[in-house]
């Protein structure tokens, strides 16, 4: 397929990118291109210009900073999956990144492009919601920080405004006694998430001291499964306790919001979501060292 015509500008700094976005109405940000280029090829979008931020130094890579792990927006899924820092400090994120698409896609696709696109079937939003991520967004008037609950606003929409750029995402560093995991029901064709469940649990004195569970895939924007979390805290993380808690997931899903398609209906996704929540919790619990 062949994209419609557009202009192209390569930014060498975040400030330049912001300025270019303002100069060119109806332009779009290009990072790795793995969300945007398919849309252009199918002629589902026709931006006037692409602002390529792919070569901007300083918004790539993973570093630890003041008790948080900071991930530059241009960091690829492959880098996230392979990062020792994330594997130990935010296991669910590296695990989820390793399940996106396929190896070639993971080599090019970026975390920033992925979350800014906010596809409901994407893997990362649920994980970032689960792990309490914060998002740094830059515009011509400076930089602001938004937490995950506010970042994902709905279907394909985020807190990033028209002339802004997502520059980095930060997570609290994991600590001992804590574990996280991501479990995914993959669509057999697209490999996107039909259901994605991210879980993070902490164990102290043999019982669950904290739990965070978030779901993606079946909802327009990731949601926390607070009913599941509440059912776990204070309990020993036995198989039975996990299964019982996972079954509370329905309480956190709004039936009117659950997505369905020709492959898997909303009713079905709601009914079986607990299976993946249970798997994520089981894996997370096993990682509590």
């Amino acid at each position: 397929m062949f994209a419609p015509q557009f202009d192209y500008y390569r930014a060498s700094s975040v400030a330049e990118a912001a300025a270019l976005l303002e100069q060119h109405p109806d332009s779009k940000v290009l990072a790795g291109g793995h969300s945007l280029i398919p849309v252009l090829k199918l002629r589902l979008a026709a931006p006037s210009a692409l602002i390529d931020i792919g070569r901007i130094d300083g918004i790539r890579g993973i570093r630890e900073e003041a008790g948080r792990i900071v991930i530059g927006a241009l960091t690829t899924h492959a880098e996230i999956a392979a990062s020792a820092t994330l594997q130990s400090g935010a296991t669910a994120l590296s695990e989820a990144a390793g399940m996106i698409g396929d190896p070639a896609v993971r080599n090019r696709g970026t975390i920033g492009g992925n979350v800014a696109h906010a596809d409901p079937a994407s893997d990362l939003p649920a994980v970032l919601r689960c792990l309490g991520a914060e998002f740094s967004i830059a515009g011509s008037s400076g930089t602001r920080t938004v937490d995950a609950a506010d970042f994902f606003e709905g279907l394909m929409t985020t807190a990033v405004e028209e002339h802004e750029i997502l520059t980095s995402i930060s997570l609290p560093s994991g600590s001992g006694g804590q574990g996280s995991a991501y479990a995914k029901f993959s669509h057999p064709a697209s490999r996107y998430a039909v259901i994605g469940a991210a879980a993070s649990v902490a164990v102290a004195d043999g019982v669950c001291s904290a739990a965070s569970v978030a779901l993606g895939g079946l909802v327009p924007a990731p949601v926390r499964a607070e009913a599941v979390e509440d059912a776990l805290v204070g309990k020993a993380l036995s198989a039975g306790a996990i299964a019982d808690a996972a079954r509370c997931v329905g309480d956190s899903l709004d039936d009117d919001e659950v997505l369905g398609d020709v492959y898997a209906s909303a009713e079905y996704r709601s009914a079986v979501a607990h299976v993946w929540v249970g798997r994520a919790l089981t894996a997370a619990a096993a990682r509590c060292g």
Partner: peptide
């Protein structure tokens, strides 16, 4: 294909695999 699924266009870009259908020449 036209949706980055099939992998027929896989190349090595700076030594690592990439789907050449999902990359602009300017990139």
């Amino acid at each position: 294909c036209d949706t980055s699924q099939c992998g027929s266009c896989t190349i090595l870009l700076d030594g690592v695999s990439a789907k050449a259908c999902t990359c602009l020449a300017v990139q």
